[in-house]
Simulated assay, not measured.
Amino acid sequence: MSTIRYIKSNLVLFGALTANLGIAIAKFVAASITGSSSMLSEGFHSVVDSLNQVLMLYGEHRSGKQPDARHPFGYGRELYFWAFVVAILIFAVGAGLSFYEGYIHYIEPEELRDPTVNYVVLGVAMLLEGGSWMIAVREFASSKGNDGWWAAIRESKDPSVFVVVFEDSAALAGLVVAAIGVWASHHFDAPRLDGVASMVIGGILAMVAVLLAREAKGLLIGERADPRTIRKVRERVAAQPWVTHVNHVRTIHSAPRSIFVAISADLDDGLTMGDGERLIEELEAELKAEIPELSSIYIRPERREDAIEAGQL
């Protein structure tokens, strides 16, 4: 894959990475000037997000490796592994540091300083994060079809996009909380409120991390293909005049756009072994042409009675 094509295919991740690096620097500068705990927490948040995008880009790169003797079905699931690592980082580093910093600031509040720098940085951060969020949402909306947002996330097999949607949504929520914390601590002359805001940000990050971990875990241990794809495969096989019954169609994603499918079908008893092999090869070619995501197709001739006896029906 050429460099230009790689960048285009991962535009969401590169956009989020660029925005987060700039925002992180600005937040740390503002925190050092104003002593804001919530601003420091937001700085940690942006650093973690930047690292997450680097890990996801690395996962995308590794998942594109061709199959070999050690991994005959390819390296696609490596992307799922790094998505799970990202969830752990958000929880352990992002949420942990934010909550810890907020707690320390709450029990040992610092003297308030001019918040102007905080407001400027928060405003710029909202613009940059909002731009990254819009890119991710637009990309995700174009691929989700007619499904609802939550249903599409649950069914999505590409964590590169929904991880950024989750992260940027949490980032925007965190910026709002940080702004409220800075304003409230000055308005009520209560520095501890800034620490409370930092702990709230930690809570938001922890919640997002749990949601991401749940989605990544499902992908990592193996999820079936979209029900519409399974139905299309079953209908195509059942339509063959030499197939008397489709016992089962079992699928698993080995990568976001790579599906392994195993089909058990009862074939016409009058078929010779040679004709059966030829017809099965032709059917596999038809299925791959109609559904390019089917990277590996295995069709097993099996009597329906045997499938019932084995508990497969």
Rank of each mutant, 00 (worst) to 15 (best):
Y100F: 15
L294K: 12
D268N: 14
D268Y: 06
Y298W: 11
V161I: 11
M39Q: 10
I263W: 09
V29L: 07
F260V: 14
E60N: 12
L11K: 00
W242Y: 12
I23C: 03
V85A: 09
A213S: 11
R192G: 01
E139K: 13
V120A: 15
A92S: 13
E290R: 09
Q312S: 03
R257N: 14
S258V: 10
A190P: 00
G311K: 05
P109N: 11
M39I: 14
P256T: 06
P72Y: 09
K217C: 01
V165Y: 06
I299L: 09
V121A: 10
V120K: 12
G94Y: 08
F73H: 15
V121P: 03
L283Q: 07
I90E: 09
E309C: 05
I308E: 12
A179L: 12
P115E: 10
R192V: 08
G43L: 05
R231C: 13
D266Q: 09
I180H: 00
K157V: 08
A141H: 11
D226I: 07
E101T: 14
I201E: 04
A289G: 13
V177Q: 04
D266Y: 04
R77I: 03
E167N: 13
P301Q: 04
D68E: 09
L271C: 10
D306T: 10
P292G: 00
K65D: 07
T18P: 02
V196L: 14
S156W: 02
G203W: 07
A213V: 03
I201F: 10
G202D: 08
W133M: 14
S41N: 07
M126A: 15
G276I: 07
L122Y: 13
V48N: 06
V137I: 15
I23D: 01
L283K: 02
A24I: 07
F81K: 06
I4C: 00
E281M: 04
E223C: 03
Y103L: 14
L21E: 06
T3R: 07
K232D: 10
A216W: 04
I297F: 08
E78Y: 15
Y298I: 14
V86D: 11
V12F: 01
V233E: 03
R234I: 06
S2T: 15
S258G: 12
